[in-house]
């Protein structure tokens, strides 16, 4: 196969070679690049460092949420509960902290612990009760949101103190000569690099991919499949808590904070070439998928489309992009 392509490549025109190269790249990078250019044309000041960082700050929650979702997706599962976990993080965080700056740290720790428990339950139900993860996390979607709303009585109450909210909306003044370097972007980099290492450079990632590809083979080759699978759910839920802290910081307390994020994160991951039902996925590509979605929202906003039509276009683009991905992966196989 490589022999043939190498020979023909010599006689290929430059255009054909460029086209082949384009086809070899994960399409999500091209989509993101195209959207980036388009947004830049519509809004030339978009690329000014401060503006761009503000955009990244807004994109961070979905991007890290997607990275967390990838862990569950490549293991062969789904996590539909992340949106509810985000909502409950915001609601419960506001109740617990109740505008007391001294409480912030233990509240964030408590929320992370809550995320840990949610992930543990998701993973244990999937692993030991053998409930399909779609159903297990669908049940958790109802439970997690129910707990948040039950606790708060259905309407948001309490306040998030400023040092809680700084993670989502604040920044370091004067760093790199910028007005404000958002904390969220630092979180984004830390999670991006950390998760990339974890999935693509460490043994754990290889075990997870093997599990998603063929659980039986993974088990027989000595992978502790139960532990690996449960840990994927825990990573995903705890990441959702982090995303919730950031979103609560940026947007304040709302019972709609996480609505729709479960599907957005799955769509973004699939846009990035993550295979549903497991076995293949990439953190950088999936995060780029989330970035592309956020760029799309920005673009549609710039074009002045009303919010409902933005939903419709979003649906069209997701179908189109996934159709293209499905088409190109079928060809290369």
């Amino acid at each position: 196969m490589t022999q043939i392509t190498a020979n023909t490549a010599i006689e290929e025109s430059l255009g054909a070679r460029a086209w082949r190269w384009v086809r070899a790249v994960n399409p999500v990078y091209l989509i993101a690049l195209a959207l980036l250019v388009w947004v830049g044309i519509r809004n030339p000041v978009f690329f000014q460092p401060d503006n761009f960082l503000t955009f990244l700050q807004r994109a961070t929650p979905l991007m890290i949420l997607t990275a967390g979702q990838v862990f569950v997706l490549v293991s062969g599962g789904f996590d539909l509960s992340v949106g509810s976990v985000v909502t409950s993080t915001v609601i419960i965080g506001a109740i617990l902290a109740n505008n007391d700056p001294n409480a912030t740290w233990w509240v964030i720790l408590a929320l992370l612990l809550g995320g840990f428990i949610v992930g543990l339950v998701n993973g244990a139900v999937t692993t030991f009760l053998k409930v399909p993860s779609l159903i297990a996390t669908l049940g958790m979607l109802l439970i997690a949101k129910g707990i948040g709303l039950f606790w708060s009585g259905g309407a948001p109450r309490g306040y998030l103190p400023d040092n809680f909210r700084m993670w989502g909306r604040g920044g370091i003044e004067g760093l790199f000569g910028l007005q404000d370097f958002p904390y969220a972007v630092i979180v984004l980099v830390v999670f991006g690099v950390g998760y990339w290492l974890l999935l693509h450079r460490l043994n754990y990632g290889r075990q997870l991919l093997a599990l998603g590809d063929n659980p039986r083979a993974a088990r027989l080759s000595g992978v502790n499949v139960n532990l690996v699978r449960i840990s994927a759910f825990v990573i995903c839920s705890m990441t959702a808590v982090v995303a919730g802290v950031l979103l609560g910081g940026r947007g304040g307390v709302s019972i709609e904070a996480g609505t729709g994020l479960e599907m957005q994160s799955i769509a973004a991951a699939v846009l990035g070439g993550t295979m549903l039902l497991g076995g293949r996925g990439s953190i950088p590509a999936a995060m780029t998928g989330a970035l592309a979605l956020e760029l799309l929202f920005t673009l549609l906003n710039l074009m002045g489309l009303p919010k409902p039509l933005r939903d419709a276009v979003q649906g069209l683009i997701i179908i189109g992009a996934v159709a293209y991905t499905a088409y190109s992966t079928r060809r290369t196989r």
Binding site: F78, V270, P308, D311, A312, L316, I318, V322, A326
Partner: peptide
């Protein structure tokens, strides 16, 4: 026909329906 994952395909169609309806 296009072999798009059903979860994504029907979610996309759902978003389109919702968008058109809410608009």
């Amino acid at each position: 026909r296009l072999k798009i994952n059903a979860l994504i395909a029907t979610l996309g169609i759902g978003l389109i329906l919702r968008g058109l309806l809410n608009a």
